[in-house]
Write a protein that binds this DNA or RNA. Structure first.
Lengths: 201, 201
DNA sequence: AAAAATAAGAAACTTAACGTATCTTATCCG
DNA sequence: CGGATAAGATACGTTAAGTTTCTTATTTTT
């Protein structure tokens, strides 16, 4: 008789399907933290997940795709994020940028994926991130509109995307943690002036 | 008697020093065009330059550094660029961004270097590029000031850097050639509004 | 409950490139 | 001309990618 619990958690020694898959993704994520993107190997992940290379290659064609899957599986900023509500637009902007996602998904991972992913998967990956952040910024703007801080929250998509874009760029181009000053500049020198300038009247 | 011409071009079979070095860099550049960053190998470059691996490793510690050297050696946008002068600020901006450097230095090279270069060389590399472009933009702005189009060309460095940053980002994140529409948007939606907004009075 | 289908896991193998070490020999310089 | 320097060839040792093959556990079907 196969030793199976009602919820699908098998006690047997061989995991399968979703259960095995998640174990691998978790292992890949752990390996990323431990070794970094450059030193992550498929065999390393296999060992950590106590399975074998073959099993991984049956699911993902290469390292980049495995890492991408692992990031989407684990990364907190794809879980939806708390949108700040400090009572004023500037505070909300600063707060949002300060909880940027690259504390979890380290720069070397981003750079690695950028180099190794093919065009289409990369575009989807970036797009996903952009949309979530875009939503947060729109929400912030709408609240500012309701408070009367600004007249309209209807801005050009490129302006909406700007804070995220600039922050991402900073992460990609430097190997240093982002100084808070940079975040303040993005908000005060670039973003808010554009928001105010875009107001009617 | 060694067979040497007055200009240092030796007819002998063994090149040395600068002459050999440049042959290697040229070979690396050609290999980049032919094979792309991902498929460039040290041996491939050595073959192309009709020398051997050892010689290359004596000069550069790894692929990334070799490529970096090759790009600096060959890339036109480090040779100083013609700064456009169309008679109006907007035209100059568009023209400048349209002759962006990534037609020669292909995106895959940028992404590769981003992933493989260490922090310091990377920072220098990026910085170099940013400064050249920054200079061009400042020149354009000064001319606009002289024409009376704007009152002051003194802008926050982050605004000066913005067009370059946004264009670079576009190149890095997508695998497609940049549509002209994007360039127009960067100028009309982001940069010029900030320039005008920054005027006194 | 047995048989058939499916997928996990182990191991061996091919290939490719890295980076190094060794040695010979051409070229340069005093 | 004779010693110093660096080029070039060759051969290693290593690492990881990705594939292939085979065995065996587990699930599904009848």
């Amino acid at each position: 008789m196969p030793d199976t619990k009602p919820d699908g958690e098998s006690t047997g020694t061989r995991r399968r399907g979703k259960q095995l898959e998640e174990a691998i993704l978790q292992a890949a994520w752990d390996e990323l933290s431990a070794a970094g993107y450059a030193n992550l190997t498929i065999e390393g992940v296999a060992d950590r997940a106590r399975t074998s290379k073959t099993v991984i290659y049956r699911r993902w064609p290469n390292r980049a795709e495995l890492v991408r899957a692992a990031v989407l599986f684990r990364s907190p900023y794809f879980e939806g994020e708390k949108i700040p509500d400090t009572g004023e637009l500037r505070g909300d902007c600063l707060s949002l940028l300060r909880q940027h996602p690259f504390k979890e998904v380290k720069p070397d991972i981003v750079r690695g994926l950028l180099a190794d992913l093919d065009g289409l998967p990369l575009a989807r990956f970036i797009n996903h991130q952009g949309k979530e952040r875009g939503f947060a910024i729109k929400t912030i703007l709408k609240r500012a509109e309701q408070r009367g801080e600004i007249q309209t929250a209807e801005l050009h998509p490129r302006i909406i995307a700007l804070p995220t874009d600039l922050l991402r760029q900073e992460v990609i181009l430097t190997h240093e943690p982002i100084p808070d000053e940079t975040i303040v500049e993005i908000v005060d020198v670039i973003f808010l002036p554009l928001v105010y300038r875009s107001q009617p009247g």
